[in-house]
Simulated scan of single mutants.
Amino acid sequence: MKVLTNSNESLLTVEGLRKSYGDVAILDGINFEVNRGEFVCIVGPSGSGKTTLLRSIAGLQAPTSGRTVFEGQEVTEPPAKLAVVFQDYSRSLLPWMSVAENVALPLKGTGSRADIGGRVERALVSVGLSGKGKLYPWQMSGGMQQRAAIARGLAYNPDVLLMDEPFAAVDAQTRVELEDLVLRLRDEYNTTVLFVTHDIDEAVYLADRVLVLSGAPTSVTENIVTELPNPRNQLETKRLERFGEVRERVFTLIQSAKSHASI
């Protein structure tokens, strides 16, 4: 299938990525590219190594073999222009720091106090937390904490935002709001997003492309272009025939991966 992207410029390339723990193989030769401006979602059955893959791409752990190339450089440690938003916001935000201080963490040494303060405020406004900077994480709802975690990821204008099931721990209504928020922020910050999720509807709604993983040891089963119009709407987009077609295909692939894993 021909891949339709927002740019012909490859920003992130994953080449033959493998990861094993002892004799247990988790990732088995992962290959794909992400072009500048794309929103790519990764889905797969439970235990397929989605988080391991994202951590390897981000330089947070070394692969057993293979490599990730980001902006022409092999990733051996977390790159400066790549940000990660994790699922567990309660652990990623430091409870003894205010929200503004948490958002400012990656900006230390990057400019004057006034410049950093302006970037923090812009990020907080962008995620709907204007005026909340003096609060502490424990004074906020789960959805607000995850907004703060997203703001921290955006504060230094990353070229790629990696998101590891970031909405899994919030309620359904908040999840819908955050999905639309991250679509808007992708455009506002002109960033590229690689988004891991276990939710098929979420993946199809958000993505320009969906990468479907097999069961462990994991490889990419299929690379699906969603071909959905932008901007997207929770009701109208999900009523489209194309949305249903892509959802059915992803569901079928994941169910097949599960059945093979259980043999």
Rank of each mutant, 00 (worst) to 15 (best):
L181C: 07
G109L: 03
L105Q: 14
E177I: 09
M163R: 13
L135Q: 15
F167N: 12
V84D: 00
V160Y: 08
I116A: 06
L107C: 06
S112F: 06
L124H: 10
K81E: 03
L105F: 14
L94C: 05
K134N: 15
M140P: 07
V103R: 10
V176H: 06
A148F: 13
P158M: 06
H198G: 11
L183I: 08
G128K: 15
L161A: 11
D187S: 10
V193S: 04
L161H: 05
G153Y: 04
L178P: 04
N102C: 01
G153F: 07
V103I: 01
T76R: 12
V84H: 01
Y189A: 10
V193M: 11
V170N: 14
S112K: 10
F167C: 05
A100F: 04
V103G: 01
V75I: 02
E121L: 11
A169W: 10
A169R: 15
A83E: 00
P137T: 08
L185I: 04
T174D: 08
I150S: 07
E74I: 03
Q145H: 13
L94G: 02
L181D: 10
Q146H: 04
Y156P: 02
V182N: 13
G142S: 10
F167L: 10
M163H: 07
T191V: 13
A151K: 13
Q173F: 05
L82M: 13
L129G: 05
D171E: 15
T197P: 11
V125I: 13
L93P: 01
E101S: 11
V125Y: 12
A203V: 15
D88M: 02
A155K: 08
D159M: 07
L183S: 06
K134H: 15
A149K: 08
V84P: 00
K134L: 14
K134T: 14
M144F: 11
Y156R: 14
V99C: 01
Q139L: 07
Y136L: 07
D201F: 10
F86M: 01
T76G: 00
P79M: 00
L181I: 05
V127D: 03
Q139C: 08
A172S: 13
D187G: 14
V182K: 14
Q139H: 12
V176W: 02
S126W: 12
N190A: 15
A100D: 05
V193D: 09
T76C: 00
S90E: 12
T110C: 03
W138D: 15
T110L: 12
G109A: 04
P158D: 07
V182E: 13
E202H: 12
L178G: 08
G117W: 07
